[in-house]
Design a protein around this nucleic acid. Structure first.
Lengths: 347, 347
DNA sequence: GTACGTGTGTAGAACGTTCTCCGAATTGAA
DNA sequence: TTCAATTCGGAGAACGTTCTACACACGTAC
């Protein structure tokens, strides 16, 4: 058994005794419930302060709320998630709720296990960021506890959704590159074994947007997509595949900033200068993109806004809203140093 | 009240009924406790599987453990923390414990509040990464629940400690730069209002190591430290201050990779080429340092190892160890493209 | 004088576990 | 046969809250 050495916790009973009232009364004060006179409220408050009382969340969880919100994500290394979380924290700061994050990894089983763990720990609400476990499992979870899904474009009665207009975002990049004079523009994307049942993963919608934009510019025959993982290494391999080929693209749109970094490495290794010989754009506008040695043109998704929105929607759901809501935020292009006109020989 | 719509949870009673035994028996099986026959264990196991039973963590928390470990950190944006967390997760994967992360921000009150929240939520153990709230509060917490502190060199009976040999790490960088021919080597560091009572914060130990190394090389008079925040912006300001001055250093040791990125921006803005005109090194060897456009020379701290170690120590403490343990991991230098000999005019 | 709110407070039964204690059955030794 | 000793299983009291139900005191309207 854990050595809980220290003295016993101060409980609601201690407070009640100290204030000379019933535990019910203390509980009411605690929850701002109806049926307490101002004087009693004051007396109880004083007693709580005097004894340095803090309610035991686990015990509260047995009957009512735990005042805890769980966030599930695959990997905290993804800087975009940090933006979202900052938004969530901003919205919830000062309120009664605490945010606890679970980093599940990319495995389907691990994610499922974490999701269940969050439910078992009696979270009052869940924010799932780009969940990679089966949709049916998500829906089952969402039927039990208020849930907001961030990223996937699939909507459902059971949960709210906060998404980025990814098709539009992809369009922004293509428009920008075409305007610069590029025609052979490739995309790196990921098959995304994101569990089963999701038809609207961000990467898929982004891909759709890419193809639409290429078609819009009459470049559909030049469209080319390299599928790998959204990671530095994945981007590198995709970059190698694309740039070593005969009719090599003059620009690559990395579907995620990390992947773009990998493409960058491939380009450098092949002796291509950026942006003189080759243009590169990313997606998500994570912190790296802005770094002085990087200066990557990218698409900003307003992660902070997505976070605050998700938190607000979740609170509403906890308070009882049942109609589901879809919130779409629109992306914007941030042009930096990695995109420029294609080399003269290509025009 | 939250709409818990779905059907009622499967409880231990349901399992007991279904298996035709008492709840006590089920509980015993659940906890691998003494006093169950193999047949009964099998029967109960089968019932649990059949009903898809999952113990209610909040309820368990009221008497025994919650099988949850809380990690407190200031900001998930710090890529070094990701390394640590990966280590923690690796060690705990497959076990009974779940890891939940709280991102407290840098404020002293916010951190204190989060720490208390974790205790209130009945965590079985706590991992505090570079805590920025008062040491007394940490010690009080550690007296109540098993705790491991990562980063700070201050040791105590109440908790275990996992630290990097930061003085040594600073020495590695200085040695490397001196060997290249540099003499005017500056450091960017942070005052770090990391709560009160900590005398061994990583940055302080690192600073000490820097001064020792400079003295060792007879360069104590050329030592120079710019104090700012460990952030891109902070690094930029420090870089500007150092590089715009008359006797500008030929090399800067950014006390953290992010800060080094800021210094990079300052250098570029002043028209200094790296590493031809000016050398730059970072600390922590975060993911950015390895990126193709960055290639920052940095000090690797083996964050993963720190994480696995911390997790292991914590489990031991939960199992009852009371003697405190200090674990030091040694850093290693990773030389990349941002360091080279000083410009000829300087030698 | 009765009936009916309305506002303020308490009693006490949940909630789903853990764990101490106790009883029954079985075994082994004297 | 009797008496421990050992093993297996269950009863039931916690744990710290929430929340329903109810009691009481005080109007107020008829």
């Amino acid at each position: 058994m854990a050595p809980t050495s220290g003295k016993r916790r101060v409980t609601i009973t201690d407070v009640a005794l100290h204030a000379g009232v019933s535990t019910s009364a203390v509980s009411k004060v605690l929850r701002n419930a109806y049926g307490v006179s101002p004087e009693m409220r004051e007396r109880v408050r004083a007693a709580m302060a005097e004894l340095d009382y803090r309610p035991h969340a686990a015990a509260r969880g047995m009957r009512g709320r735990t005042y805890t919100i769980g966030v599930l994500l695959d990997n905290i290394r993804n800087a975009f998630f940090a933006d979202i979380l900052e938004g969530v924290n901003t919205e919830l700061r000062g309120g009664d709720y605490q945010v606890l994050i679970g980093a599940a990894g990319f495995g389907e089983e691990d994610q499922t296990r974490l999701a269940r763990a969050l439910v078992d720990r009696q979270m009052d609400g869940l924010i799932l960021i780009g969940p990679g476990f089966p949709r049916t499992e998500v829906l089952r979870t969402a039927a039990t506890v208020p849930t907001v899904v961030i990223g996937h474009h699939d909507v459902a009665e059971e949960h709210d959704s906060v998404v980025d207009a990814d098709a539009l975002g992809a369009g922004l990049v293509i428009d920008h590159l075409v305007r610069l004079g590029h025609r052979r523009i490739a995309l790196t994307s990921t098959p995304g074994n994101r569990g089963s049942g999701w038809s609207g993963t961000p990467e898929r919608v982004q891909r759709r947007g890419y193809h639409e934009a290429m078609r819009r510019h009459g470049l559909q025959d030049l469209a080319r997509v390299a599928m790998t993982a959204f990671s530095e290494e994945g981007g590198y391999r995709a970059g190698m595949e694309l740039l070593a080929s005969a009719d090599r693209p003059t620009a690559v749109f990395g579907g995620a900033d990390v992947a773009a970094m990998g493409v960058f490495r491939a380009a450098r290794e092949l002796g291509l200068r950026i942006p003189e010989d080759f243009s590169l754009a990313g997606y998500n506008n994570t912190a790296v993109a802005a770094l002085a040695p990087v200066r990557l043109t990218s698409v900003d998704q307003a992660g902070g806004l997505m976070g605050t929105t998700a938190a607000r929607l979740l609170l509403e759901r906890i308070e009882g809203r049942t109609r589901s809501v879809l919130m779409t935020v629109s992306p914007s292009l941030v042009v930096r140093g990695t995109t420029g006109p294609p080399p003269a020989t290509e025009v």
